[in-house]
Design a protein around this nucleic acid. Structure first.
Length: 580
RNA sequence: CGGGGUGUAGCGCAGCCCGGUAGCGCGCCUGCUUUGGGAGCAGGAUGUCGUAGGUUCGAAUCCUAUCACCCCGACCA
């Protein structure tokens, strides 16, 4: 490709509304152009990367036995009413009306559409298993689109759906997709981790996320370097940090702690560690009594002072699992007769259910608020100074150094960007949509389903978040918009340079290498800066100076300096450097 | 959605308080010089100052409304 036949548009300064490095670099490198909040045009340079990602996904999906189709972006509301998602999906679901005032949606995902295909087409267990996928535009009307292409409203996703005759078959399909995803992200050249995930709103029981590791990632992941345990922090099991509860050592005492509402303050005042304090978190749930009158219930959660509440876990505790909220100050005053900051499980005005984190339940001689402003209790002990907690549960976020739940080491934390998700769905969609098949016994039964997503456009952003420096993007070979760039110095005015550059270009093209020749005749600084910004991994520089010695130069985007190579051999030399 | 902020040339910004000729840098165009890390000199083009009302002799500037965008909190590929 000659650059004069392509389209390059770089910016020295990023538009001021860009918020993350990948978005800034994509805008500056001319990969995307913003059309509206969370809606981007993929410019020619950006589209090349997207097409390469899609091609790899397609190859591996096909190799794993999945079959591609293409389902519509606009889907009738009726389908979504069948599964109840028309009601359940909030304003994120883009709803539109056609000229006849009929309701439609812009698909955020395609479970309904694919299940509809399945119930029309799959009649017998002999047709199973089946895995259908497409790579299609999605729309989610995010409350707050941000991070460029990583949390856009319009985006491209690969979504696959497996259909099996039973749960064992669904498990096989799930494992196949899991393995395919490992291959895909490996081929893309990204550092990633598959982690156990919360099943969230979609439901189902088995789920893994594929996270591209990046410090700027929105998700925290916990993993064990000495075993294969890895989970989203939302899910990662917090083990009790004490093997057993020690016997009380000291006398229960009320201590004045004026203006020390935080555990940190109290620990500092008392001169002991945060791990001897317990913080009180007051939640409330709203329900109805037997007469249908609304009533609220207040709950007290106890977490060690240096830990933090995990709201996903709290939402799984019996009693809190139908939705909870933080208590209002009025509710707190009513039950504890005390303002937040000095709350605790002892001397409550109206006793509430106490849920202790696993670690808290094994603590002894700990410190809590005294339910009296400016006072704390120290050397508090379960059984002696207060009753055992009503419930013990895993309530906290794991922290680095925690024992791994598999007992094979300690946990480490890192951040990631979720780019893929595999889900076991069961019959969540097939049952309400009556997608059944005839089994070997001749009886109809609902299809066992799984769904598998990859955020194609998000991957572009994630790859950049993971691979960039202060000059620009550092693409892995597999997804760089161009694999090789030839920068001739003086293409427009030096016949020898032009001839050599054209020849190297022709050789690489003949070898099937994705190469671009910068024939603008720009000054070297401009060319180098542009291509470093765009992030083309392999650069060949051909200049008058080197040519006199019969040399061109090779420099990888990550190299500190160029390597001289004989002009006649440079095409072969570069081909040797490209990772398949 | 709630709270905060910003809309001035393709991009980044100043001007707004205190109303009176719309500016700077980068980019763009022309010419000459230059050519191994974002060139120099000279000349040039580009704006309904987000939109609509209002106040005023006069509005980018003050007032009102509206729209868009961005930032901070609850969700997801």
């Amino acid at each position: 490709m000659y650059l004069s036949n392509f389209f390059l548009s770089t910016l020295r300064e990023a538009p001021s509304d860009a918020d993350v490095v990948s978005q800034k670099l994509m805008l500056r490198a001319g990969m995307i152009k913003k059309l509206a909040a969370g809606i981007y045009t993929y410019m020619p340079m950006g589209l090349r990367t997207i097409r390469k990602i899609e091609a790899i996904i397609r190859e591996e999906m096909n190799a794993a036995g999945a079959v591609e189709l293409l389902m519509p972006v606009i889907q009738p509301a009726e389908l979504w009413q069948e599964t109840g998602r028309w009601q359940k999906y909030g304003p994120e679901l883009m709803r539109v009306k056609d000229r006849h005032e009929r309701d439609f949606i812009v698909q955020p995902t395609s479970e309904e559409a694919v299940t509809d295909i399945a119930r029309l087409e799959i009649k017998s267990y002999r047709q199973l298993p089946l895995n259908l996928y497409h790579i299609q535009t999605k729309f989610r009307d995010e409350r707050r689109p941000r991070f460029g292409v990583m949390r856009g409203r319009e985006f491209t996703m690969k979504d696959a759906y497996s259909f099996d005759k039973d749960e064992a078959g669904a498990q096989v399909s799930y494992d196949k997709m899991y393995a395919a995803y490992q291959k895909i992200f490996t081929r893309l050249g990204l550092t990633f981790r598959a982690v156990a995930a919360d099943t969230g709103a979609i439901g189902g029981s088995r789920s893994h996320e594929f996270q591209v590791i990046a410090d700027t990632g929105e998700d925290a992941i916990a993993y064990c370097p000495t075993s294969d345990y890895a989970a989203n922090v939302e899910l990662a099991e917090g083990m009790p940090l004490l093997a057993s509860r020690a016997a009380p050592q000291a006398a229960f005492t009320k201590m004045p702690t004026p203006n020390k509402p935080r555990c940190e303050d109290v620990a500092a005042l008392m001169g002991f560690g945060l791990e001897r304090t317990v913080k009180s978190i007051v939640l409330a749930t709203d329900g109805e009594d037997e007469h249908g009158k609304p009533v609220s219930t207040v709950w007290l959660l106890l977490i060690r002072g240096d830990h933090e509440l995990n709201e996903v876990k709290a939402g799984k505790v019996p009693g809190l699992n139908k939705g909870f909220r933080f208590a209002t100050e009025a509710e707190i005053l009513a039950h504890f007769n005390c303002k937040p900051g000095y709350l605790g499980p002892i001397n409550m005005k109206i006793p509430v259910k106490v849920i202790a984190d696993r670690t808290v339940a094994r603590m002894s001689d700990f410190t809590t608020g005294a339910n009296e402003a400016d006072f704390h209790f120290v050397n508090v002990n379960w059984g002696r100074d207060l009753p055992e907690p009503d419930l013990v549960a895993d309530l906290r976020n794991v922290v680095a150094g925690d024992p791994s739940p598999d007992g094979k080491g300690v946990l480490a934390l890192q951040r990631g960007i979720e780019v893929g998700h595999v889900f076991y769905l069961g019959t969540v969609y097939s049952a309400p949509m009556k997608a059944t098949f005839l089994g070997e016994d001749g009886k109809p039964q609902p299809l066992e389903m799984g769904c598998y997503g990859i955020g194609v456009t998000r991957l572009v952003g994630a790859a950049i978040e993971q691979n960039h420096d202060d000059k620009g993007i550092l693409w892995p070979d597999a997804i760089a918009p161009f694999t090789v760039v030839i920068c001739p110095l003086g293409y427009d005015r030096n016949a020898a340079v032009k001839e050599a550059a054209d020849k190297v270009h022709a050789e690489l093209v003949a070898a099937g290498v994705d190469v671009v020749l910068d024939d603008r005749g720009e000054r070297p600084g401009v060319m180098f800066a542009d291509w470093e910004l765009v992030g083309v991994p392999h650069r060949i520089t051909i200049g008058d100076r080197g040519l006199k010695e019969g040399k061109a130069e090779y420099q990888h985007r990550r190299d500190a300096a160029a390597t001289p190579v004989a002009v006649g051999e440079i095409a072969a030399f570069v081909r040797g450097r490209i990772k398949a």
